[in-house]
Design a protein around this nucleic acid. Structure first.
Lengths: 355, 355
DNA sequence: CATGTTAGCGATACCGGTATCGATAACATG
DNA sequence: CATGTTATCGATACCGGTATCGCTAACATG
């Protein structure tokens, strides 16, 4: 802890002025040159054991912490992984981030996150800001960035990892699942279970492209069977349990004779289930609630709902691993597309015994 | 997009070698000096309109994105806010992060996140790594960092914002709530509602200090009334709905005559509620489930549980605002401690009518 | 003893920006 | 016409590290 009076690089704590120490100061304290101190601290060759210990001691006494700005600028590598996700309002993207973060741990790499709020213009700005930090790789959500954003990403000259979605042309790496197909598969499973009168409840579809793709896939299969949604309730607010509950109450009031409601995701579906539970009566047995994500919540519910489990933790880990390999390993992964197929659970046959 | 063959600062995309353009190149393309280009791009004075437009055009054509490493190293300010949270496995900390992120938006500042997994040693390492990026402020969770970590934070010479907790001595700023008091308040509310036979179900108490403080507060009040937990189920795994459900099933099997179970948080409590719902019978009316956090989930449940709403979004926003003020505004906030008292909801009297 | 080899260390030039100060030209002023 | 003022721009020195190359001393070798 160096105490100075005249420096700019300071911050008042109590009445003291504290300044971070630099490599130069450590070197001076150890009686060697900057270069030797640098070598000693990094543990590279060409330093005698005696000198190394002097430097380490000096660094310890000065509480020296290296300046990664200088390191990165000098070495032309930041080992930063930029990650842009659309939302933090349900548990899905935090789990992706945790997966990336866990996979990067110990590799000397570090994730930096940004939230786009499902807003393409905001996403563009955020990506631009992130790129200015010269990340070694970038992870973005979805494959449907506007052309301008794609051009910027290509120009960044770093590995681009697009996650969550699969329906489109990747820039570089792609880790995700086909939401169109997830919708189709769920529709087929529900039809097989005998369901015929479908409602749809969704939110923020104007912004959430993947929810829209699931809905479109679902409708494709329905129409192949000469069917369609009997009723739809769509709100432009972001998804939440409360919103799902509210819209479901509306729908059940106007169209009570459905045998299945497909929701834009599990949060909405959970709200729907809660609405049904509060209504009581035969509703619970008659109407199957179907969502998407396979949240822990959805799986633990006292009454099962149908859902597709999105492999979000694995997607995060895979993205993290790709970034790590592309940066630290010599060669990036030869495999460019990592495709997952969500497992469907909880689809019960029509008119099951009451729970 | 500059195409070069010999540079190191490149990345192969297809068969092309792409390189990021620098201010020097923009300046050359515009026929001016680096310095003039810098001024033009930053919109500072001393540049003619004509020159400014030439530079902006050149920057546009070269897809120039400034290098913040260089900028920050040169200007000695990163405008980075480091944030260390213990977990991303429930929605609480993602909401804090979203609050910080939202408050920083448009200010030119950027949050960087790290996850400590409730591990003090890991937290120390993460904080060290973060500090090496020379953040302009740092947000850490809790007030109980080991002495070594506190020393490092003080030495960092930047504003330190400790969040979530309030029971302790802050380094600099403190935004949170007293978990000891939250536990006490909940116990008093439940006692007032006539509850007497309490169970406790918790998880990861060896690491989650704040859950431990709530439990301790709760027990203080119980013992003041000559009471204590009739039974406790504690598991060292991290909290989850599934774990809460599992432990509750255990507890109800061995001690069915409880009238209230206090859980370490709402995730665990929700699992507990689901366990009760599956058991059916009079359990739901007889046993009150009490948690902590006031998650949207808990509030929307078809059967209400008792909970204290932690103001996590506000805490995030306040932390973000403090960081912003300390860095961009001239003076940091004079108020150092921001204390919140969680609101308790869902405490129903003993033996309410069945739902 | 002359020469080669190696270990250990330092001087210097970057990395890509910005702050600072000085230079230049155009114009106004007495 | 000499001088002062202002607008516009560039040269230079940093910021705090690392890469590179060269230097020196100690030691081995013939």
């Amino acid at each position: 802890m160096t105490v100075l009076g005249a420096s700019l690089n300071r911050h008042s704590i109590g009445k003291l002025l504290v300044r971070k120490s630099t490599l130069e100061e450590v070197a001076a304290a150890a009686g060697v040159s900057k270069m030797t101190a640098s070598r000693a601290l990094r543990g590279v060759a060409d330093v005698s054991t005696e000198t190394r210990e002097k430097v380490l001691l000096a660094a310890e006494r000065l509480s020296y912490i290296g300046n990664r700005l200088a390191l990165s600028l000098s070495s032309q590598r930041t080992n930063l992984v930029a990650v842009v996700v659309p939302s933090m309002s349900n548990i899905v993207f935090p789990e992706v981030l945790a997966g990336i973060s866990a996979e990067l741990e110990g590799s000397g790499m570090q994730a930096v996150f940004g939230i786009s709020d499902y807003d393409m213009a905001k996403e563009h700005t955020i990506i631009r800001d992130m790129l200015s930090w010269q990340p070694s790789a970038i992870v973005v959500t979805g494959l449907d960035q506007p052309q301008e954003t794609v051009r910027m990403l290509r120009n960044a000259a770093i590995p681009v990892i697009q996650i969550m979605d699969l329906d489109g042309t990747p820039i570089d790496f792609n880790v995700g699942l086909s939401h169109g197909r997830a919708g189709e598969d769920m529709a087929r499973a529900l039809l097989t279970a005998g369901r015929r009168r479908f409602g749809y409840i969704g939110s923020a579809l104007s912004r959430d492209l993947r929810a829209r793709k699931r809905k479109a896939g679902f409708e494709r299969v329905l129409s192949e069977h000469g069917l369609g949604f009997v009723e739809q309730q769509i709100d432009d607010a972001f998804s939440s349990i409360a919103l799902g509950k509210h819209l479901t109450q509306h729908m059940l009031a106007s169209t009570p004779d459905l045998d299945c409601i497909y929701y834009s995701n599990d949060d909405m579906a959970t709200g729907g289930l809660f609405a049904c539970m509060e209504l009581g009566g035969s509703v619970l047995g008659d109407i199957l609630i179907a969502g998407f994500n396979g949240l822990d919540l959805a799986v633990a519910l006292p009454v099962r709902i149908a859902t597709s489990r999105s492999p979000r933790r694995i997607i995060g880990e895979t993205a993290g691993r790709l970034a790590r390999q592309a940066v630290t390993a010599g060669q990036p992964s030869p495999q460019k597309v990592f495709s997952f197929v969500p497992e469907i659970t909880g689809v019960s046959a029509l008119h099951p015994s009451r729970l």
